[in-house]
Amino acid sequence: MKVIVCVKRVPDTETRIRVGDDGTSIDPSGVKYILSPYDEFALEGALRTVEAIGEGEVVAVTLGDASSAETLRSALAMGAHRAIHLKGEPTMDGLGTAKVLAEAIQAEDAPLVLLGVKAADDDQQQVGPMLATLLGRPCATSVSSFQVEDGGVGCRREVEGGTAVMRLPLPAVLTITKGEFEPRYASLKGIMAAKRKPLEERGVTVPAAGLKVEAFTSPPDRAAGRIVGEGSDAVPELVRLLREEAQVI
């Protein structure tokens, strides 16, 4: 079975982010980039699926500029069989992203498409269900584990107040959250092999963004807090502050 995984290049979660001089992007200097953590979970799920079935391929797809090639190489090093680099400017506008991905995926005839539940940069949490809607496929979001079984996919979804056990007919789209799919490390052998795996580049035109970024700002610093005291003796004063000053209890 062919499984497509949509992956995105994002700043490392440890990185300090500064607003760039143009005021509408971040300053990339000194920023380390990684494969978005949820996309790693998705990739791990895809690899295990193909391994369990014993045949098929995992195809990593990204929309991004030249620097995203590195992200695809990491996906190949983890075990993806081939990669498609949709070369264009990534956008916060999830609909634009979903449209570009939908066009590429339509040509691939893959019964299962996986995404991260959210990208660690824009945090829009929307590309998966938008892509599914454009493709006319069912979609389950926030999937913590899944298994392909006779013509469908059984999955566990994290929802309010518990876990929903679901079954979707194939073809389907899933967005993956943390759960069963702890990502494997790329082995040295995997990293060497990745250099020879097919990485296809396609120029794409990202549709004009329906969402325009006007300005990036740094969040206001939280006003310095205070240590109310030490040990349980400080509790009455804390409770008084929470009631009278903060008015939250």
Partner: peptide, 16 residues
Amino acid sequence: RPIYAGKVFARVSFQA
């Protein structure tokens, strides 16, 4: 909208 896990706030407008 907070982005980069709240490290930046983005002000956005709608074109449609």
